[in-house]
Computed example of a mutant assay.
Amino acid sequence: MPALLIISGVFLIVLGWLWLAVAARKLPIRRFLLAILAAPLTLVLRGLGYARFPRLLMVTGLLLALAGAALLQREQPERFVQLLAGEWAAPSNSGIGIDGELMGQPFNPERIFWRGNDLVIEEGPPQRVRRALTVRFDPASLQAGTRTIDRLPGDSGAWPELLLQWHTGALTQPGLLRVAKDYTLSLDFVPSSGTTMLLRLRLHLPTSPATLLYGEASIKTTPDWLAGMPQPAVAPAASPPPESSIAPAVDRAQSRPQWQNVSILAVLSEPELFIGQQLRFTNQAGRRYEGRLKAISDDRRIVLAQNNGANQVDYHFRPTDVVDLQVRYRSSR
């Protein structure tokens, strides 16, 4: 709609301009040149013999164009800023593999890089960043020997600080938010080739408006403190016990269900057998999680539900993160 109003307005302005120039060909040479070179100026001039209808047509076009611009600024402020800056070409979708929402605004970053010990993820041209997330690391406080960071709300200790920045339009002030707690963050740094690393990210801020980012991206450079960390050892997943041994175990534990080892492949291939059951597992970083299996998502992630007071919080885990998976079946009575 904004584009249609702007295009229609420009068309009427050009049409009225041409009409006015043709109608002014019998006027004195100065007035004729004014109609050709600066027809909009004739809208405020009276008594000079310029035709009325071409000028009314230009006024109508000008009003339509201004209405379209106002609507564009309200609905797509970042695009409005681009037009004011002379960036007429439509923005290309050159995302890096991470997307979601940042403070309630769509976030499709185009750059990811290290600035000292800060991991910076930006959207928009470098000279006019629209939205950005900065993860500030303190290498001295990180757990030694791991490239994985898993943080849940309420976890104590020294964790990265988050810096969120956004700019929603030319008529609004830029926003800035620092977050040091009450966020869920999962970061995996996987060596790729040379100094290049693959970053796997999931970030959730339970604030209003909410922030949820996820995806994978490649980083060309790696800080020395991160490059020197060894890869965490991956423990083999527990193999599933024979089916004949599972049922008796459940029968013997009617009054107090016991934890039983299962394989992640069994949960992924037959999730209906485990939905609603209590699961617990240890991830590759050595952290233990427990909750009720809610679902297997469309992207094959394990959705674990945990009660947090009167609320329920859902956590998503990649199957490759899961080590030593166990299930505790509910009693049938």
Rank of each mutant, 00 (worst) to 15 (best):
residue 241 P to L: 15
residue 65 A to R: 06
residue 22 V to G: 05
residue 126 P to C: 02
residue 87 E to S: 11
residue 269 S to E: 15
residue 323 V to L: 00
residue 266 A to I: 01
residue 189 F to C: 07
residue 101 E to G: 04
residue 23 A to I: 02
residue 26 K to L: 10
residue 228 G to L: 15
residue 215 G to V: 03
residue 314 D to N: 13
residue 270 E to H: 08
residue 57 L to C: 12
residue 92 S to Q: 14
residue 114 W to P: 01
residue 66 L to N: 12
residue 113 F to W: 07
residue 286 G to V: 08
residue 273 L to K: 14
residue 272 E to V: 03
residue 171 L to K: 13
residue 8 S to G: 11
residue 4 L to Q: 07
residue 56 L to T: 09
residue 188 D to M: 04
residue 199 L to W: 01
residue 139 P to T: 15
residue 161 E to W: 00
residue 217 A to N: 01
residue 56 L to Q: 10
residue 249 A to L: 13
residue 236 P to K: 10
residue 63 L to Y: 04
residue 226 L to Q: 06
residue 327 V to Q: 02
residue 268 L to I: 07
residue 301 R to F: 05
residue 314 D to W: 04
residue 7 I to T: 14
residue 314 D to I: 05
residue 240 P to T: 01
residue 109 P to T: 12
residue 300 R to C: 01
residue 190 V to H: 00
residue 75 E to Q: 15
residue 191 P to G: 08
residue 249 A to T: 12
residue 159 W to I: 13
residue 69 A to D: 13
residue 256 R to M: 09
residue 205 L to W: 02
residue 231 Q to D: 14
residue 184 T to K: 05
residue 264 I to F: 03
residue 135 V to N: 02
residue 158 A to D: 15
residue 329 Y to G: 02
residue 202 R to N: 00
residue 124 G to V: 08
residue 291 G to T: 09
residue 55 R to A: 12
